[in-house]
Design a protein around this nucleic acid. Structure first.
Length: 578
DNA sequence: ATAGGGTTAG
């Protein structure tokens, strides 16, 4: 096609190629597969070289395809190439560029482009503003996002639409300002841009995550009354919220409810239930839920099976877990690192450390990369099998492989070292510069205080308790329990009792069942029966009960007490509870 | 004709 003059020939060619490009763009929009990106880039090159250049809208459409595939830097480089070829940007391409920069964590650059839009003499559109608001949300600058949103309203720059509201509501939920999100939802209801199921679902989900399941259920009823139909995601969020609170029965009922109104539960919905049953140890119920999903024509996926495997492993039923692996393999589902983490954990719990080590090696030979959780599991197993040296070696190895230990790694290490009479090594690790970032953790102090007290170094334990306050960390119920135990072991019973009162009255930290058992046992050992009885009455009235050790110590008192003595009365009360 | 957001599982 050699058209040297502007004429009919060239015009018709351009028009033919326009529809040709349109077709290919349309095709790409619906395509999926490995060659999609390359095909798009190839088409872009052809379009860029075409004389006369194709319509800007075609470029916009094509680059949008690339953006949807999340190739933001590539999209930006294509805009750069267009500029070099003399194709000017317009408010549409600018908005896409802003979006790309925002996704690449360069919201500041996005605002620079906003200035360019102004300079070009265009008033920015709602889409541009919404993109920037979203950019601020992505950058965790939700306060500024809300300010910009308010500015739109105040200065009447644009009327927000469902996109804008959706972005702001999501941002508010993301930073935990669910009540503000709820206010905005109410504000929408009073205006002309009514909230839809997605807006409600976002807030419902956030309420569930804030542990306010009943508020979530209330909002769910409210949206239904407003005539907005819940979808599978709304229901799944609620199922999840209920399960997190141990309300599995209501969750299962929710599943029935949704089917009655014609919303089909998805694999995700069922997985939430399956997982929840497994976590609370009822793998049997979980298996029934899996059967129910299969009956509905849904296919369990690796997440379903991982839940079952983990459930069996937690119960120590390794054989059952291995059977699930076989079911996975039969269906050509590929196990992932999470599958193996559960299994390794199962072997470790059963003290079958050699099998754990073997599996750990085997998955690496297969090309799977262990994550921090794999290493944490192995470390715990090695310590518990009495091999701190191997644990230490593995800890070095994980760092050499570029994995950053997390707070759990340090807890496992410190606890393991203390248990294996390496308290001073534990403290050295705790003080080492590489763990500096993570040591602002009460849990680590609890472990060290406990460790030092158990090896008789009470002074050091007390020093650590003081240090915790200096660092501004708040002791929790475990810290107090350990400290109470330390004080008792030193014979400072008065101080122990004071601390028990102080934790609650001054620091708002309620003693739990362990706290009471620890202190009661100490008093019983000292034959301070009256003190023990007062505390036993208190713990019973608070709904706690004795553990087996405490109960046994009490029973041992029976021969030396009268029938109507306080001790026997308490024992009778405890029997009634149990 | 072309741009922007949103909720569910290990």
């Amino acid at each position: 096609m050699k058209c040297t003059r502007i004429g009919l020939c060239c015009y018709s060619t351009a028009s033919a190629s326009t529809s040709h490009f349109n077709q290919r763009i349309l095709h790409l929009k619906n395509a999926s597969g490995a060659t999609k990106l390359n095909d798009a880039l190839q088409l872009f090159d052809e379009m860029l070289l075409r004389q006369p250049p194709p319509n800007i809208t075609q470029f916009t459409q094509l680059i949008s395809v690339i953006v949807k595939m999340k190739h933001y830097s590539t999209a930006l480089s294509l805009f750069r190439q267009m500029r070099l070829m003399g194709i000017p940007s317009d408010p549409y391409t600018m908005t896409i560029s802003i979006n790309c920069h925002c996704r690449l964590n360069q919201v500041t650059y996005g605002f620079a482009l906003l200035a360019t839009i102004f300079k070009q003499g265009h008033p920015p559109s709602l889409a541009t503003y919404t993109t920037l608001i979203h950019g601020l949300v992505l950058a965790d600058r939700v306060f500024e996002a809300v300010e910009l949103f308010k500015k739109l309203l105040r200065d009447k720059l644009c009327d927000p639409d469902q996109f804008t509201y959706g972005t702001v509501i999501n941002g508010l939920c993301k930073v935990g300002h669910t009540s503000k999100a709820l206010e905005l939802l109410t504000f929408m209801e009073s205006g002309s841009c009514k909230p839809c199921v997605q807006h409600y679902s976002t807030v419902i989900d956030s309420l569930c995550k804030d542990r306010m399941v009943d508020d979530a259920l209330e909002l769910f009823t409210h949206m239904t009354e407003k005539g907005v139909l819940a979808n599978v995601i709304t229901y799944s969020s609620l199922v999840q919220g209920l399960c997190n609170f141990g309300r599995e029965t209501e969750a299962a009922k929710m599943l029935i409810d949704m089917e009655e109104v014609g919303v089909s539960p998805s694999v995700v919905t069922f997985n939430i239930l399956v997982n929840s049953f497994c976590k609370q140890g009822s793998v049997k119920e979980a298996e029934l839920a899996v059967q129910a999903m299969v009956r509905r024509g849904l296919h369990p996926n690796i997440i379903t099976y991982n839940a079952l495997i983990d459930g069996y492993c937690l119960r120590g039923e390794i054989e059952e877990a291995e059977n699930v692996i076989d079911r996975v393999m039969e269906q050509d589902i590929v196990p992932n690192i999470i599958t193996y983490n559960s299994l390794i954990n199962g072997y470790c719990k059963k003290k079958r450390i050699d099998e754990a080590r073997h599996l750990f090696q085997e998955i690496q030979d297969e090309g799977l990369i262990p994550d921090v959780i794999t290493y944490n599991t192995m470390l715990k197993g090695l310590f518990e099998s009495g091999n701190p040296a191997a644990a230490r070696e593995l800890f070095n190895k994980m760092q050499a492989k570029g994995l950053t230990p997390d707070i759990c790694t340090y807890r496992i290490l410190l606890h393991g070292m203390c248990k294996n009479s390496q308290c001073s090594d534990a403290l050295a690790l705790f003080r080492s510069p590489e763990s500096k970032e993570l040591v602002e953790d009460v849990g680590l102090y609890n472990i060290l205080i406990d460790g030092y007290s158990k090896c008789g170094k009470h002074d050091l334990a007390m020093d650590l308790f003081d240090e915790l306050h200096v660092k501004g960390l708040k002791p929790n119920v475990r810290t107090y329990t350990v400290m109470i135990s330390v004080l008792c072991q030193q014979g400072l019973f008065g101080k122990a009792k004071d601390l028990l009162r102080k934790m609650e009255e001054k620091n708002g930290c309620l003693p739990d069942s362990v706290t009471y058992n620890v202190i009661v046992q100490q008093f019983l050992k000292q034959k301070a029966f009256q003190e023990a009885e007062i505390l036993l009455e208190e713990m019973i009235s608070r709904g706690f009960t004795t553990d087996s050790t405490t109960f046994e110590m009490l029973l041992n008192q029976i021969p030396s007490t009268r029938q109507d003595s306080p001790t026997q009365t308490i024992i009778q009360k405890l029997i009634n509870i149990k």
